[in-house]
């Protein structure tokens, strides 16, 4: 087996907002650092923010079902507030949310976790509730990015470098939302395991996985 642990370079950026274009941002910050053969990894929450997918809870009116389900004792990860649950309802529909709750009750009976997301929709696991993201987005609920495949393809076209969009957390869990090749997905999964994106305070939403020396 070839070692999966390619070195990764976290890249510091300015505070990314919805005024940024994710492809241009990635091009600018990886210039002189990423070359063909390397892999550019972009954090999913930042990709989502550039798409205007950070939403202020004031702009959402939680319906009765969202209010009820957000009180539901089996915690669905980050969907703690009625507003976040309302957005989840908007994303996948009431039926799938209710089905997810049923699955989660069943899962608890047999001591299994994560049934809610498997049934209601894995994209809901990408929703960061209020305060799930740091300043200046702590007031927002952040949905997952739309059409991540399109983003990685565009990054490849502009930079000539393979790209992935990743959701990485501190509990050594790497989820690749989109990749320009199965090979880059496989390598990124290994290389990102120690979360080189760091926490939000570190402001390094782009990571270059180096397969070649400079």
């Amino acid at each position: 087996m070839v070692s999966m642990n390619f070195p990764s370079i976290p890249i510091k950026t300015h505070v990314v907002t919805e005024k940024d274009d994710i492809v241009e941002l990635t091009r600018k910050y990886t210039e002189g650092i990423a070359f063909p053969g390397d892999i550019i990894a972009v954090a999913e929450s930042v990709a989502a923010i550039t798409q205007g997918r950070a939403i202020l809870p004031e702009k959402i009116r939680p319906g009765l079902i969202a209010k009820l389900i957000s009180r539901f004792p089996a915690k669905h990860g980050s969907l703690a507030t009625p507003s976040a649950m309302q957005l989840a309802v908007r994303e996948v529909g009431v039926l799938r949310i209710l089905l997810g709750c049923a699955a989660s009750i069943f899962g608890r009976l047999i001591g299994a976790k994560g049934y809610f997301y498997i049934v209601a929709g894995r994209e809901l696991a990408l929703i960061d509730d209020i305060a799930g993201t740091m300043w200046p987005y702590e007031k927002h609920i952040i949905l997952g990015p739309k059409e991540p495949e399109k983003i990685v393809r565009s990054i490849f076209e502009v930079t000539g470098v393979d790209a992935v969009i990743a959701d990485v957390n501190d509990i050594k869990c790497v989820d690749i939302l989109a990749a320009t090749s199965p090979e880059s997905e496989r390598i990124a999964k290994g290389a990102l395991i120690d979360n080189p994106f760091g926490n939000d305070d570190q402001q390094t939403p782009i990571v270059v996985i180096k397969q070649h020396k400079f």
Binding site: P57, A80, T81, S83, D129, I130, A131, G132, M134, E138, K139, N199, D201
Partner: peptide, 12 residues
């Protein structure tokens, strides 16, 4: 406050 209760979930 929703936001500030949320912030209290973050160990940082």
């Amino acid at each position: 406050n929703y936001v500030e209760e949320g912030l209290l979930r973050n160990p940082h």
